[in-house]
């Protein structure tokens, strides 16, 4: 029993760290990993999703629907932003850093001015469950499920649907796709919107567990960029395994030495990976497959 409880605790911590990394990086993996836009406003899409989720949930919508609402609004905001700003900067990656950073500052400060420095959140639903002599949050188990479902859903979207094939083709060889009659501008817009919606989903899923402040997106930034950089361009053979490895490093170090070493471990891991595998895990795995 003692052993089983310890095993459960370890698995829970690993799953929790994994879920956080996967959910928070999914949107960035699409926008930065696939499309190559260094999106410093990623955190603000997350904040947007979280705020919309909290507002709609407190207005009476059931939480799952509120979370979808958050994702939807973030996605629409993302598509509007793509049309207004990002579209003109696809071939100027350094300029897109400045532009998205500016958007991020405007969004954070705008929310601060309009909605104030803090907003009441929604409580974490479902309560806790005791295993052995420790207790765990049930909602966190739901988040782990959501992370796995998210990966499965994205896999289905990108490899089993027409939109997925067209999107991958457009990003891989835009001229060829255009020659075959694909409206690449529309595909770019939709893909960017998808990335923003995924970020909004992350915000919605984590909204019940966090403090609602305009700067809340910043707490996701380091983890999501680290995961995407370690993972490389592909979500499935890159970001997902990267999240698993980083989750093991983080959960292990945090259990032994505390949060500080968990963070240090995460950052050391990304330095090592960038040095040894500049293309990230996905480039390495794809090379090994050949």
């Amino acid at each position: 029993m003692e052993l089983a409880a310890t095993l459960f605790s370890t698995a829970y911590q690993f799953g929790d760290a994994f879920a956080f990394l996967v959910i928070s990086c999914a949107g960035l993996a699409v926008i930065f990993g696939m499309m190559g836009v260094i999106n410093l406003a990623h955190g603000e899409f997350i904040m947007c999703g979280a705020y919309v989720t909290a507002a709609t949930a407190r207005a009476g919508l059931p939480l799952p629907l509120a979370i979808l609402c958050g994702a939807l609004v973030a996605g629409l905001v993302g598509m509007a932003l793509e049309r207004a700003v990002i579209r003109h900067l696809y071939h100027r990656p350094l300029d897109s850093i400045i532009a998205t950073w500016g958007v991020s500052l405007i969004a954070t400060q705008g929310v601060l001015i309009v909605l104030g420095s803090t907003m009441q959140g929604v409580g974490t639903p479902l309560g806790g469950v005791a295993v052995g002599d420790r207790s765990y949050s049930l909602y966190r188990l739901v988040l782990m499920g959501a992370a796995v479902a998210l990966l499965a859903g994205l896999y289905w979207l990108f490899y089993r649907t027409r939109f997925g094939v067209v999107a991958r083709a457009t990003i891989e060889r835009p001229q060829m796709a255009r020659a075959l009659g694909v409206d690449t501008r529309r595909v770019y817009g939709l893909t960017f919107g998808l990335g923003a919606a995924l970020a909004g989903l992350a915000g919605g899923l984590y909204a019940p567990t966090m403090t609602m402040v305009p700067t809340m997106g910043a707490t996701f930034m380091v983890e999501s960029f680290v995961t995407v950089v370690v993972g490389g361009a592909d979500i499935f053979v890159g970001a997902a395994p990267a999240a698993a490895i980083l989750a093991a490093i983080r959960a292990g170090l945090t259990a032994w030495y505390g949060q500080l070493f968990g963070q240090i471990g995460l950052l050391v891991a990304v330095i090592v990976v960038i040095r040894i595998l500049p293309g990230g895990l996905s480039a390495f795995i794809k090379r090994a497959r050949r």
Partner: peptide, 15 residues
């Protein structure tokens, strides 16, 4: 336990 500023996930700390 000392928590770096900006950390928002506490599962392991709770354990």
């Amino acid at each position: 336990e000392f928590i770096p500023l900006g950390v928002s996930q506490f599962s392991q700390t709770i354990q």
